[in-house]
Each structure stands twice: as structure tokens, then as C-alpha cells.
Design a protein around this nucleic acid. Sequence first.
DNA 1: TAATTCTTGACTAATTCAATAGAGTTAGTC
DNA 2: GACTAACTCTATTGAATTAGTCAAGAATTA
Lengths: 149, 149
Amino acid sequence: MRISAKGDYATRAMQELAMHYNRGPLPIEAIAGRQQIPVRYLEQLLLILKRAGLLESKRGVKGGYYLAKPPNQITVGQIIRLMDGPPAPIFCVDPASHDKCPVEAICGFQSVWDEVHQAVAGIIDKTTLEDVCHRAMLKLEPGAATYRI
Amino acid sequence: MRISAKGDYATRAMQELAMHYNRGPLPIEAIAGRQQIPVRYLEQLLLILKRAGLLESKRGVKGGYYLAKPPNQITVGQIIRLMDGPPAPIFCVDPASHDKCPVEAICGFQSVWDEVHQAVAGIIDKTTLEDVCHRAMLKLEPGAATYRI
DNA sequence: TAATTCTTGACTAATTCAATAGAGTTAGTC
DNA sequence: GACTAACTCTATTGAATTAGTCAAGAATTA
Ligand code: FES
Ligand code: FES
């Protein structure tokens, strides 16, 4: 019932990159600094996101990471699933799990946990990085028209 | 985003006791056997539930545990909070947490996680053991009018 | 070529989780 | 009143996961 540091870090890093969309690569250090994430740890997470096709990168001077797709085509669900696995609260309601629950036949909770699963999946799968950026904008000083780098 | 074995075991044990409501104490062994839970582990969980006022117990021969209240006055949320803590996916949306999130001012995810929190809490807090028993009944053989002990 | 930045895999410390163990207490039964 | 079924409490363990660190290397640009 909880998002790991991995999921937390990865989502916030993605917000940072979404805010910077179409403004060239953003180096790991910049993301880590602004979002207060340990650099050496963030390295690993960005690599996972890259391998999954959500990010692209450029090495060397002026290099860094950037989104592989527009922010409105990346959902929070994609990031969380990658980092924390499926949002099912228990394996017996995880569509991806093939194990059969030994007490399924007498358990009244399966449908409860399934409701929870659907509720969570519904939220994270409909929320895109674009939405997240809008929400972040609303938090900034009313005067600040754009995101400060 | 997941229920621990502790929460899983505790909820299933409570279902078992709810099914047996008003039929005298149910010994730990009986619960553990039917629900396939390690006996010595279940002992600890039932004690926690007892200390929280959800269960009462009777020692000695013919002793065991029984619900302290009718099944419709015990919610799944009470059990889960006891075992797995608050259903908030991250501390910054946990009303009980007093720590301030260091990136709150620039984070677009707070409201997303809060939606998740509300959704989960809404489900587990409105679902009672009575509901769970009904759901379990529906799973049993259509012919079986009552719960087999 | 030198500086910068990503890439990769290995490694470790700390914590949590799930379970086990054992000694003790209470309540009925015969 | 001994015997036994059953709950009570604390401690300990082993495995797994989590969170984070480290070192060496490869690509890019100035
Ligand atoms: S625990 Fe698996 S169906 Fe309830
Ligand atoms: S991580 Fe705390 S507000 Fe987003």
C-alpha cells in the first residue's frame, strides 16, 4: 500500500524531464539536485526508464536525458509498474500472476482487493506527465509564468 | 501498493471469526488450519487484534477467540491499518504523518497520491466483515446453505 | 586530447518481513 | 487438585528486499 523510494524518485525525475520537454537534454546532476535524489541511485533508475523506452539520452558535454515521447503520452502507471511492479495489492488479483490462491474458494476478500486494484490502476493509468506538470504549475508562485530551471 | 502477509492473514482470520460469530470461541488452531496460516504466527496477529479491541478471547479448554463486536461494526480498514499501517502510498499524503515533504512545493504528484489514498481508504473503510462474509457465501457451492465448519 | 556525461555491473549496509521458539498463565475437566 | 487444552508474551532467527555506493568504461563535444 505504498510507493517505494524507487517509484517516488522515478516519478519525480520524470516530472522534471517533462517540465523540460523540448528544451534539450537534462543531465542527471540537474535532476538529482532539484529533486533531492541521490545521484548514484538516480543513475540506475533513469537507465531502467531508458531501457523501457520512456527516455532517451545523449552522452558527453551538453548531454543528458530527455523524454522519448510527449508528456501526454506517458502515464504515471507506466512509471510505477516499472519501478514497483503491478498495482495489485495481493497476487490473487494480479492479472499477470499465474499462481492460484490456495484459499480462493472460501475467501471473501478477493473482490475487495480487486476493487482496490481497479481503483488504483484507474488513477495512475489515466494520469499523464502532462497532468502532473499542470498540477505542479498550480503550486508555483502565481507570478511565475514558467518553470524556473 | 501491496498487502503484507500480516494483513492478508489477519483479514482472513477475521473473516473466519465473523463466519463463526455467536457460535462460541474458535481456537487458533481451527482458524489456522482452515485458512492455511502458520499457527505460531497467527497467535501474534490475534493478540494484536485483541489489544486493539476487535477480538476477545477465552482461555482453557473450549476456549478460543471471538469477535468483540458484530461483523457489521468491524471494517476491513480497521484491520489493515492495524497490520500494515495507514493506506497512504507515501508519507506526504498521510494525515497522521507530521513530517513535511522537502519537495512539496514543486511536486505535482502529491494530489495524485492523495487521490490514490482516498480511493483505497474509501473502499476498505466502507467494507465490513459482514460484507466480506456475504461475498464468501456467494463463492460456496450453491447448495451449501451455511458455512461448513 | 581533455572534460563531460551517460553506461554497466558488482557490491554492501540496513531494514523489514515472515516465521519460529520457548517459557509462562489461565481455565476447565475428571 | 492434577491434568490438559488453549491463550500470552518476549525473544530470536533467517531470508528477502530496499536503498544506496562504487569503480571502471564508453561516447560525445569543445
Ligand atoms: S487471499 Fe487469495 S483470494 Fe483471498
Ligand atoms: S513526494 Fe512529497 S509531495 Fe510529492
